[in-house]
Each structure stands twice: as structure tokens, then as C-alpha cells.
Computed example of a mutant assay.
Amino acid sequence: MSIDSAKTILVIGATSGIGRALALPLAALPSKPTVIAAGRRQERLDELASQGLEAVQLDVAASREVLQKNVADILAKYPNLDAIILASGIQYQHNFKSGINLDEIHQEFTVNYFSIVTLVSLFIPHFLALSEKGLPSWISPITSGLALMPAPQVINYSASKAALHSFSESLRVQLADTKINVLEIIPPLVESELHDAQGTTEALSKFWMPLDEYTSKTLDGLRKGDKHIAVGTAGKVWDKVQSSGLDGPYKV
């Protein structure tokens, strides 16, 4: 089922990158949903609010108790919330031969995986209640083509996204008898601030998909209700995974 039917969409990680790029055109859909931009940086939230979006400050790396309060506050203010896009992510380079930063290892998994699972678990009761009323909802984690084919230079990032991909596949099966739709967004290498801190922007810009092009194709997949929205090189890798017959969890 298409996200075109959503009434209120929360984009977590909307202050930069893919999250920000998706938030604005989602608000311009013909159905005119309310779009809530959530992220850490207040100045960027203010900018999005000036363009007609709702804005909520939320740090996915916060404690479980803080995230519980964040979700409770969001649902109290937006009881019609029926879609979440989970776009938060960080990336570091690690080389085990030259030594690694374990703080960065843990931070990567906290932001890219543990926080997403925590947020999904907190929103699920609300979405199940909608389902019992016959109303659809959508959960859209953003993973990566590196979840399917890892890049050794970002060894832990690839692992965190592989964990989130696996989680998304199994979550879809667990929710198959409900009206909750799990649409996994699987980006290729995309133009993003994600690479600035590592100093790899100039090199990667020769290969990445421009953000505008990526956003258009991903929005099209969301509007079609595709369970796996993989475009560019990620789409080619996903096609190989599907052709192998290993494109989902065991059915038991």
C-alpha cells in the first residue's frame, strides 16, 4: 500500500541528507500529509519549519527513557501519526590493522541500529492500535546497499546496516497479518554530508548518485508501496540477491 495514503509522516533524521531530501517532497504529495521533521540541530529544524513542516527536536542517541518521552510527546501532539521514516545514520572508517576507536564502533551501532529498533518498538503499539481499527501505517527504515555487499573501509557501518536490513525483513514477516507496512529504503552511494567528516567527499563525489535524482526515484518507490526501494547500484545488488532466492527470512 502506498504512503500516499498517510495522513501524518514523521521523518527522523530530517536535518540532513536523505531524510531532509525526502521530507520536503513528502509534504508536497497530492494527499497533503502533515510532515514532521525530527532531528538534533535546532537551526535546521527552524529552517524546515519555515518551509511549512512541523519540527521536533529528537536525538536518536539519547537514553531509552528520553526516547520514550519523545515518542509519547509526539503521539500526544500528533495522534493521527501513521508513518515513520527512520533516516538517522552516522559513518566512520575503521581499520583493524592500525587500531580502532571503540567509542565510534559503539556509537555507530547505537545510532544506526539500536536507536532504530528502540524507536520502532515504541511506535508499534500505536500502529497496532491503528491496525485494529482497519487503518494502515508505514515503517520505513533506511538501510544501505552496503547491508547487502559490505565495504571493508566502513566495516562497522556496513555491519550495522546489515543488522537493520535483517531486522526489517523479519519485522515485515511478524507484522504480515496487520495493516502495518514495512518499506525498506536501500540507498546506493548518495551525495550526502555523511562523508564530510571523513574527508572522503571529493573522492566519492565522482561516483555517487546526485541527491535530487536519488530522492525522486526513492519517492516513486514509496508511492508505489515497494517493500524494498533500492535504486542505482543498490538496485543492481538487490536484483542479484533476489535472483539468488535468498531475498527474505526463513518462513516458519
Rank of each mutant, 00 (worst) to 15 (best):
D59H: 06
Y250R: 15
L189S: 14
L26T: 10
N70D: 13
V35Q: 05
L75N: 07
D247K: 03
S2H: 08
P152T: 15
I186D: 07
P249F: 12
Y113E: 06
V241C: 05
H228W: 12
L219K: 07
L58F: 04
S98Q: 15
R20H: 14
P125W: 05
L164W: 03
F109V: 13
R40M: 05
A87D: 07
I105F: 15
A27H: 13
Q91W: 10
R223V: 13
S140C: 12
D226K: 04
A203M: 15
A61C: 09
A6P: 01
K240C: 08
V60H: 07
S166V: 10
R64L: 14
L22A: 04
A129N: 14
I229K: 04
A23Y: 07
L130I: 05
S166R: 13
K227Q: 13
S168G: 05
V173I: 14
V56L: 12
I139N: 01
G221D: 08
S144G: 09
L48E: 01
K7Q: 15
P125Y: 11
L45I: 01
A162G: 13
A230M: 02
D177A: 12
V252G: 14
I85R: 06
Q68D: 07
I124K: 11
L119Q: 00
A27Y: 05
G52K: 09
R44D: 14
L222H: 03
H165Y: 05
L128C: 11
T8N: 05
I100A: 09
G232K: 04
T110G: 08
A83C: 13
D82Y: 11
H228Y: 15
V190C: 05
S170L: 12
T233R: 12
I116T: 11
I9N: 03
L211I: 06
E132I: 10
S50F: 05
K227E: 13
F127H: 00
A37I: 07
A159I: 12
F123G: 02
I100G: 01
E184F: 01
A14N: 03
V56D: 01
G199F: 01
E193F: 08
I85F: 10
Y157V: 12
L26F: 12
L128M: 13
S5G: 14
V66E: 12
A147S: 12
D212K: 11
A197C: 10
S5V: 08
F109H: 10
G39S: 02
A21K: 11
V237W: 03
I142A: 03
E43V: 15
L211N: 09
I12E: 04
L183C: 08
L67D: 06
S131F: 02
A234M: 06
E193N: 01
E169N: 13
S5M: 14
L171C: 03
V237R: 11
D73G: 06
E54V: 11
A21Y: 09
Y250C: 15
P136R: 05
N181A: 09
D239E: 10
K206T: 11
R64T: 14
I85D: 09
P136G: 06
K32F: 00
A151I: 10
S140V: 03
P33T: 12
A55T: 06
G199V: 00
Y214E: 02
P210H: 06
G39K: 10
S2D: 04
L22Y: 00
I180W: 01
